[in-house]
């Protein structure tokens, strides 16, 4: 292909956007609408997952040891537990630290009456999980170890979080399926309009001896540009809405700040930008190929 033909083809793609401005607008609007819905949904789900993850990270299993168990044995147990894949972190709390914590939390100045540590046998391991759904398996394992007196766990919290996680997964799948169907419907309608607009033009090109590549290339370039524009617009809108919403939630629900920790927009956009642009370009590319394909056999 000559360089002049190459630039001509690219130029035709850009010119075509202007020539068929209504089709361009309709296509950009369709892609933007789909990606806007996707972006909003993605932001909500990602934040929700973040909240659940934060809650999960706070869930711990506490292991107490038999009377007289030495610190060496406790630390050996700690090393053993740390090797398990579902375990994120193990914190050793000595009897002294347990007593100090108790005093601070519950006794305050009344603690002065105690001369000895009443929690002498309360040295424990606090185990934090990377996957809260694995808590029952971990508890079974811990209970099978020697020197262990008690395993404290919150079954309700763990099972609630596991339930919320599965609920998010199901809702995500459902909404993605609906979005996908809506997108396919909207895009196929737009492509149908495109076909009726372009049918004659494609026929003329074919009659005068244009190759399939020559006919297709400007349409594909046009489709990709539409896809890029169609993905940038919703990203821009989401950026503004997201920031405003984050500020609103932080101010209005200040007391829930520890639970409702909204992710910074940068974190959301790290993945949302490439995904949206990729989907936009993909839709534009496939839409344009589908538009042209039917009419190439003239």
């Amino acid at each position: 292909m000559r360089m002049s033909s190459f630039f001509f083809t690219i130029g035709q793609g850009f010119k075509s956007l202007k020539r068929n401005r209504w089709y361009t607008l309709a296509s950009v609007a369709t892609i933007s609408a789909c990606l806007f819905l996707f972006g909003v949904f993605y932001s909500i789900v990602t934040n929700f997952q973040h909240v659940v993850k934060t809650a999960e990270e706070g869930v711990s299993v506490t292991v107490f040891f038999n009377e007289g168990t030495t610190e060496d044995i406790i630390l050996a147990t700690k090393a053993l537990v740390e090797k398990r894949p579902e375990v994120r972190q193990v914190v050793y709390v000595s009897a002294q630290e347990a007593w100090e914590g108790f005093k601070e939390d519950y006794l305050g100045e009344y603690a002065d009456g105690f001369t000895e540590n009443p929690l002498e046998d309360s040295a424990n391991l606090q185990i934090y999980l990377s996957d809260v759904s694995m808590q029952p398996a971990l508890v079974t394992y811990l209970e099978s170890l020697s020197d262990i007196r008690l395993v404290n766990k919150s079954e309700v919290t763990a099972s609630t979080l596991v339930g919320v996680n599965s609920l998010i997964a199901y809702i995500s799948l459902g909404i993605i399926a609906i979005l996908l169907l809506v997108s396919i419907f909207l895009i196929s309608n737009t492509v149908t309009i495109g076909i009726s607009v372009r049918k004659e033009e494609i026929n003329i090109m074919k009659y005068i001896g244009a190759t399939d590549f020559f006919v297709r290339a400007p349409f594909v370039i046009e489709g990709i540009i539409i896809g890029i524009i169609g993905s940038i617009i919703p990203l821009f809108i989401i950026y503004i809405i997201y920031n405003k919403t984050a500020v609103y939630i932080a101010e209005r629900f200040a007391m829930l700040n520890s639970i409702l920790d909204i992710l910074p927009v940068g974190t959301i956009f790290e993945a949302l930008v490439p995904i949206s642009v990729l989907i936009g370009v993909g839709i534009g590319f496939l839409g344009s190929v589908a538009t042209v394909r039917k009419h190439l056999h003239v």
Binding site: E201, N203, I204, Y207, I208, G209
Partner: peptide, 29 residues
């Protein structure tokens, strides 16, 4: 396509690219 380049085709309804000018229509071929 290569075969058709040896044919000149004229239709009753002209079949010109309506959004382009005279020069562009001819140059397109």
């Amino acid at each position: 396509p290569k075969f058709r380049r040896n044919l000149g085709i004229v239709f009753q309804d002209f079949r010109l690219l309506k959004d382009r000018n005279v020069y562009e229509n001819v140059a397109f071929a």
